[in-house]
Design a protein around this nucleic acid. Structure first.
Lengths: 113, 113
DNA sequence: CGGATATGCAATGCGCCGGTTGCATTTGGA
DNA sequence: TCCAAATGCAACCGGCGCATTGCATATCCG
């Protein structure tokens, strides 16, 4: 078994998305956006524990992971969710679950025979 | 809007799980386990780019997040997936998606009226 | 027993991450 | 025009995450 199997390509795509979601502050931002809709940086900062600069950086991280996108409206930047990557992550977890179930089935059969 | 809304409790539970999945090496380990079934540390190390110690640490991280569990068998430690937390993560993403869709609907309705 | 295999424990190094502070820049509006 | 609001840019810092190396311990087996 080498690094090339087990879907390494998929892994290196999914990991950054999970990494982006793996921070409380960022995940909270995602939660805010999902429940309140598109918001500006200042609005997101109000109700967050950290500085506006921190919020900005976190939004950049999320954007790099493809989880959010921004649109300028006058002097403010409006951020909104981008579901594609999140769906991809969800699908990835689903695949893992399925393969694991299959592995357990094979194992069970192996034990029984 | 304060820190108490938008399901902060859920956020602080889900974040560590995503964080654990947000590393290529760890995600690769999860992939290996899901496709090949329960494996020992040495077997996992063979086919991984890093040291056995690194693998061990990563497994510890995954275990702390509740994503894997281990069983001793003689002189070796067998690791296997623990689907519950992964399912929880998947569900979390699903909820986010739903809320976002709802938010978009509200927004659309608001614009139209 | 004794060697080989599998794992545990500990110290160390270093880069990046999350956060802050200070100041500059753009834009809306009275 | 002039002020305030919203954001951008940059430097700085403490800590932790990822990985390594070296050595100790446990376990299997001939």
């Amino acid at each position: 078994m080498s690094l090339h199997s087990a879907g390494w390509r998929e892994v290196s795509r999914a990991a950054p998305v999970f990494a982006a979601l793996g921070d409380e502050t960022r995940l909270a931002l995602v939660a805010r956006l999902s429940s309140e809709g598109p918001l500006s940086i200042t609005r997101l900062t109000a109700g967050s524990a950290v500085t506006r600069q921190a919020v900005t950086k976190h939004l950049d991280v999320l954007a790099t992971a493809g989880l959010v996108s921004d649109v300028r409206r006058g002097r403010e930047r409006i951020w909104e969710l981008e579901l594609e990557q999140m769906e991809a992550a969800r699908t990835y977890l689903e695949h893992v679950s399925r393969r694991w179930d299959a592995a357990l089935d094979r194992l069970k059969q192996f034990v029984e025979e």
